[in-house]
Simulated scan of single mutants.
Amino acid sequence: MKFPAFVNDLSIPPQQYHHQLRNWTSEMRANDPVVYNEENNTWVVFHYDDVVRVQSDFATFSSEHTVKDNQGVSSENGSIIEMDPPRHRAMRSLITQAFSARTINDMAPRIQSIVDELFQKVVAHGQMDWMTELANPLPVIVIAEMLGLPRDKWPEFKQWTDAIINKTSEAGYAQEQFANYFSQAIEEHHKHPGTDVLSRLIAAEVDGKHLDHEGLVNFCFTLLIAGNITTTNVLGNMILCFDEHPDQLARLSEQPELASTAVEEILRYIPPFRSGPNDLLVGRIATTDVMIGEKQIHKGESIEVSRISANFDEQQFTDAQQFDIARTPNRHQSFGHGIHFCVGAPLARLEIKTTLETLPRYFREIQLNHDQPLKQVESRLIFGPRNLPLSFQAR
């Protein structure tokens, strides 16, 4: 099997692309839910239960050596996303501390303040580009402040992050700039520790030992990336959802208590990660011969999961094709599952919910300008709109 041509076509407007993807994955669930993709020699699973199984059973489906560089070579040291227990458990505990419920709750007033500030800058203009003026800056400013880094550096942090996650030609330069910047920040935090996340990481211990300099730099990379890429794209996809379903935005205005379930439905309906053949990221590698559905997977073969397919699986979600902000339960797979569940999920949810609740306080009659063609983010990993020109009336 080869993926249909549209899957890699970044020129398709994001809403049209998403509609085609939903239709295609529906066909795959019905006709070929476990299939071998000849383009990158990887098995792909489409059923919800199989997606959960592959992500949950780390003993059978390993994450080791699943991230590759631009030449298709696995990294030597590996990041936390390509670790199995027990190594993963020790490293994950540090990130869990950094993103603890208390830390996230303590950030709530500051996140509200930043959202207010960004909206106040545009409210008198009657128009804005949602991505440029809110979705891009908000998550990077938040995670920078959590790490104790200056917020005015956010445009550079965003530029470097995008280059690294999208494996562009600037990725090497971005990694070098990040490493130099974080090295200086770590040295400064050693001398003058505070209550920020970076200071906590410096003081933290794993198996009785402090993280070395390289480990701290790698964690800064992980936290900065985990703290912004998902949120930025979900904030953009949120506008796409409500543009397609304005009745649900009106419903939310009448029932603001639905904000939390609305966030989960946005995450389910348009996930922030691309679903297609990828030669830089492999979901898992089979550690033994195993059956998935009716297909034999051999030891050493790669398996990818289609999260968007899982999110629309009719066996899991009633009226799966409907966008319903009151949907519950909503066990979507947009943040993953198992030990690699997205560590930044609580922070992303808080930022999206805060934005969603704040939006009607400033704007009414919000409209997406379709006269300007919408474009997808130029990424092989991330899915979302690159631009979102909005017009509105101020409250």
Results as ranks from 00 to 15, higher is better:
D57L: 08
N70R: 14
E205G: 05
F61N: 07
P193V: 03
Q321D: 14
T287R: 11
F242E: 06
V54A: 01
D84V: 07
I303P: 14
T222K: 04
N369E: 10
L390Y: 01
A108I: 12
Q333S: 14
L21Q: 11
I225P: 10
L138N: 03
K353V: 13
Q376C: 08
G72E: 06
E294V: 12
V34A: 13
Q296P: 11
E145Y: 00
E254Q: 14
E133F: 02
E378K: 11
Q255K: 13
V123D: 00
Y269S: 07
R87F: 08
A5P: 07
E244N: 08
H213S: 11
S75W: 14
D212A: 02
N387H: 01
Q112P: 01
G276C: 07
R395I: 10
H18L: 14
S79E: 04
S253A: 10
F392E: 03
K158E: 05
F317D: 09
F221D: 08
H298Y: 15
V305T: 15
I366D: 02
L10R: 06
G338K: 01
M146P: 06
G126R: 00
R151W: 00
M291A: 13
P373Q: 01
I186Q: 04
A394R: 10
V45Q: 03
Q322K: 09
R110D: 05
P272H: 00
R284A: 03
D50F: 03
Y173E: 14
V234L: 15
L374F: 03
K2I: 13
L149K: 01
Q175G: 06
E294F: 02
L381M: 15
F273W: 05
R284S: 04
Y17S: 06
G148W: 03
D69Q: 07
C342E: 07
R151V: 12
T354G: 05
Y48R: 09
S306H: 03
M291T: 13
H65V: 05
D9P: 13
A348T: 15
F317A: 07
P13G: 01
L356E: 08
Q316R: 15
L381R: 03
I12Y: 08
G215S: 07
E145S: 02
L249Y: 15
T66S: 07
F119Q: 00
K121T: 06
V44F: 15
V140I: 15
P14I: 01
L252K: 02
T66R: 08
E170P: 01
E357A: 07
I366W: 01
D152A: 02
I266Y: 02
T355M: 11
Y36K: 14
F219V: 12
A203S: 13
D371W: 00
L198H: 01
E187T: 12
T25L: 11
H332E: 14
S113D: 12
E38P: 10
A348L: 10
W130M: 12
S309G: 06
L147Q: 03
F6M: 11
W160I: 10
E145F: 01
F323T: 09
L258V: 09
Y17K: 06
P246L: 06
N70G: 15
A226Q: 05
T318M: 05
K121Y: 00
Y269H: 13
N70F: 02
T261K: 10
L240C: 04
S275H: 05
G172T: 07
